[in-house]
Write a protein that binds this DNA or RNA. Structure first.
Lengths: 170, 170
DNA sequence: CAGATAAGATTTCGCCTACAACTATTGTCC
DNA sequence: GGACAATAGTTGTAGGCGAAATCTTATCTG
């Protein structure tokens, strides 16, 4: 592990004094703000859900995504991509929701490889209860500070960044 | 678990048809963009580090934070807050870095409760190697799409949101 | 139609993180 | 000065997530 350490650790000790501060660049700062803001808001959402005795945030994300999809169902792969988690992780996440009776697995008849996560009434009802909690917290964090116009600009800016982060090859 | 389900699931079945789309609000959209962008960029950074045979992203964050601190050392609690992780989690994260010889634990003589994570030369050198990888990826994602001025505005906007998310009590 | 290749999903495994309980030190109040 | 609360870190435990291997089904090719 860390093969480069033994190579360079003693080779360039002067580097220790020449460390550039990452915060020196506007982009590094922007990334730091993005990262910390995401963490802070996520924490808030999780706390709010826990306090109301609701399931954790990933459950909400699954329910919300599936509910917004046509026929209130989504292919596992698409759902994983939407939540930005791996398919393996999603499989088990969906397992828990199925066990809780919130969604069910349905299967495609034309292509028997694909399976859907399909919303159940209990899931829709729970989602309806959870949404206000999330919405209120987001309103507190965003609406309180940003006009609708600003929020929209923020969204657009972030989407642009994400587009590059996803599309452009490394 | 999920006590509210049994209460409401059958009580308000009509809610299933009255689900509001979270994407309908500008703030919900902004949050979605923030969340997905963070995930996408994080993934990029992790991949870039792994591809260069470097330690994972949290290690970089520790090294960067400590390197930027006065005397290149930070109290555990402050470090945990800076990284937005729990103190317990940080203890073990620091354990790994100590074991790898990148940082060391030092202690405060005036208050013997506090311990510092202190940068070692090997850590500084490794950081110097890792920084370009991170910087390049961030430049790709941010500089390519945003002017310095836009990046700065983005940072300010996010900080404002974060301020509310942290400060306002829930 | 048989074999090869690709795509979708699941399973196995191990690491990492949060949560809660615990220890040790410091501060406060009477 | 001693009891109690508060603060700083660590530890023990459980659970979630990612990486890679596996299994099944589709599709392509001769």
């Amino acid at each position: 592990m860390i093969r480069r350490m033994s190579e360079q650790a003693t080779a360039t000790p002067s580097a220790a004094n020449a460390v550039e501060r990452s915060g020196a660049t506007p982009h590094g700062d922007a990334w730091g703000a993005l990262s910390r803001t995401h963490a802070a808001v996520t924490q808030r959402l999780q706390e709010a859900l826990a306090q109301a005795d609701f399931p954790p945030l990933p459950w909400y994300e699954v329910l919300a995504a599936v509910a917004d999809a046509p026929d209130q169902r989504m292919r596992m792969g698409d759902l994983a991509e939407a939540l930005v988690i791996t398919r393996g992780g999603l499989t088990k996440l969906v397992d828990r929701l199925v066990k809780a009776g919130l969604i069910e697995r349905t299967f495609c008849e034309t292509d028997r490889r694909v399976s859907y996560a399909t919303l159940l009434p209990a899931g829709a009802d729970l989602l309806a209860e959870m949404r206000p909690v999330i919405t209120d917290e987001l309103a507190l964090a965003f609406s309180a500070n940003l006009s609708d116009r600003q929020a929209d600009e923020l969204r657009e800016t972030l989407d642009r960044v994400r587009g590059t982060a996803c599309g452009t090859g490394g």
